[in-house]
Design a binder for these strands. Structure first.
Lengths: 335, 335
DNA sequence: CTGTTAGCGCCTTCAA
DNA sequence: TTGAAGGCGCTAACAG
């Protein structure tokens, strides 16, 4: 039951080196030899041992997916897209979730487990600190970011500022003036983080409309449904004058709708709600949103990362478009 | 920059074998030696090469997650739970999605890419054919199933038949008699597949109530929102007499609600809808459902699989409970 | 408790 | 175009 490369070599009547070359599609193998080797390998059910191949070659044909969550809309879809791109070229996707507690500052991400495990790393959705990025670079492997803006690295994301602008302009255009904001966990140190960008879009649009956003209009929804719900309650407790809420994700927006319902407020008559994402269930819920293509971002980032690994292309910044989708959760405020 | 085990050994003044033993927590290492080795390894930032360790030991400390989808509620949550259990003991999760086209029969899953890559395989949610299971066993590694009932293997799932019974009895109890069913892709060959079990529960409850389910009352929703929507339209086109729909997943149930809305039907006044899952957004949508703990199933299955790998425990069947959660999508039919 | 010594299975120069 | 041979970095016997 060895079924190692030498078994194939013996049966095919060639050397192990030739088997290796033939099966990996390298040039310098005669077509006849290659066919024969391939046939023998198939017959024997031979599959090269990845450990042995990695050890000898230094390449793992594996990409590490570094993500805080796998069961949230954006993350699940990015992972889906990335995995599809990787699988298409025979690369594996290794899942690394790092617990993000709700405390600030969180425990730093330690990428050392990835050492010698991956040919590249795809960071999904979480703004890393400079120290964490440095640690990642210590792995000496290409790194790509999706949905979070390290513009000095290969990055695929949307224009968070613009998304915040689109959402808020929609509300202001409907006549809202007291617009609350449910943010994710904004990172004060990184103005380029998605929550920060979205918040800036919000505050700038308000100011441009002659409205000075009050400090209490902004609450932290931790990027999930319950967080959106809880924080919207806090927002409305303190600021009942608010007539509209812009949430930095659809899941938090859905939490905001739940909060409104808890309080006997009608959406959109008493409270307008807009999110960001384009969640699959947005239509059912009637959620107005600024939509993005998460799975497309994931697959493109994976492809660009593979290019980088192969020595093709340079680290670049790809900004995906966002589109406002108007549904039933927003309307003009009541007179 | 070798930073290999021999570097650590040299600096610590011991042999590589001792370093290996010390860092892996094996016995037969004096506490003093272990401390010293650990300190040196930390200072040098040494992390063992997984390829080399796998090659030498035959173990990969990696589990393959075989799943058709990563961005559907059940699957995303099982993966989340499994990854958490694995990470806790230093195992990696390797993601393998296999495309499930909507054609029947689908292309067989080929597990040969997993050869030498994993210490065990966790199959999530898809009923495999006997041939596919055989191929999996050819890997000579423990296999576990989540959410699909290979009862001859380690399996963690719910009682699909009972779930179908709970959902249908709820509807019949409300007075419904013409109850449609949106199934996933039922596998005629495997009576134990989730869609089949849920369907059987449905038809048995109807028969017990003296109702013979018509062939056209059952449609295939392919386990997603759009499939649920499309198939519910087809169902209601052909059978407008139906007053309630039992969908085999919450996502399909949400599609059914969308279809009802498309047709100007009110839920639950004109059409009652019940699903299975306990989707996070069920509350927002007001969906009555038979809920299950997907992430708990994932983490438990991973733990049991690790036990099997470690030679502890036997393949067993764990059936998780389901609970009917009544919400606003079901009510008595109109007179 | 610790060191020595073979490999694990493949890739990759270097020669032919 | 192919073969021979060394080595990738670690683990696991076995000896001491």
């Amino acid at each position: 039951m060895t079924h190692g490369i030498d078994e194939v070599a013996r049966v095919a009547g060639v050397s192990t080196a030739t088997v290796s070359r033939a099966l990996r599609g390298l040039p310098n193998v005669s077509p006849i030899t290659r066919k024969r080797v391939e046939a023998v390998a198939r017959d024997l059910g031979y599959v090269a041992s990845p450990s042995a191949a990695s050890l000898a070659s230094g390449r793992t044909r594996t990409i590490g997916l570094l993500t805080p969550w796998v069961n949230r809309w954006f993350f699940a879809n990015v992972i889906e897209g990335a995995e599809r791109s990787l699988r298409a070229v025979g690369f594996d996707a290794l899942l690394y979730t790092f617990d993000i507690a709700r405390e600030v500052p969180r425990r730093p991400v330690d990428p050392s487990v990835l050492r010698h495990r991956v040919d590249g790393v795809l960071v999904v959705g979480l703004p890393l600190t400079d120290l964490e990025v440095e640690a990642l670079e210590g792995l000496d492997r290409p790194v790509a970011f999706v949905g979070t803006g390290r513009d000095d690295h290969l990055t695929v994301r949307l224009d968070d500022h613009e998304a915040g602008v689109q959402a808020t302009e929609h509300l202001v255009g409907l006549g809202h003036r007291r617009v609350g904001h449910v943010t994710g966990t904004p990172d004060e140190e990184h103005s380029w983080s998605p929550p920060s960008g979205r918040r800036q879009g919000w505050s700038e649009v308000l100011r441009a409309a002659g409205i000075e956003p009050e400090a209490g209009w902004e609450v932290n929804g931790h990027f999930d449904i319950q967080g959106g719900r809880t924080s919207t309650h806090a927002l409305l407790d303190a600021h009942p004058e608010v007539t509209a809420v812009f949430a930095a994700s659809d899941e938090m927006a859905m939490g905001a709708i739940l909060a409104a319902r808890d309080r006997g407020l009608r959406v959109p008559e008493d409270l307008s709600v807009v999110g960001i994402d384009g969640h699959d269930l947005g239509e059912l819920v009637g959620l107005t949103t600024v939509s993005q293509d998460a799975s497309g971002q994931g697959s493109q980032a994976a492809r660009l990362l593979l290019d980088l690994i192969a020595g093709r292309g340079e680290p670049s910044l790809v900004v995906h478009p966002t589109v406002l989708v108007e549904r039933a959760s927003t309307a003009a405020p009541r007179a």
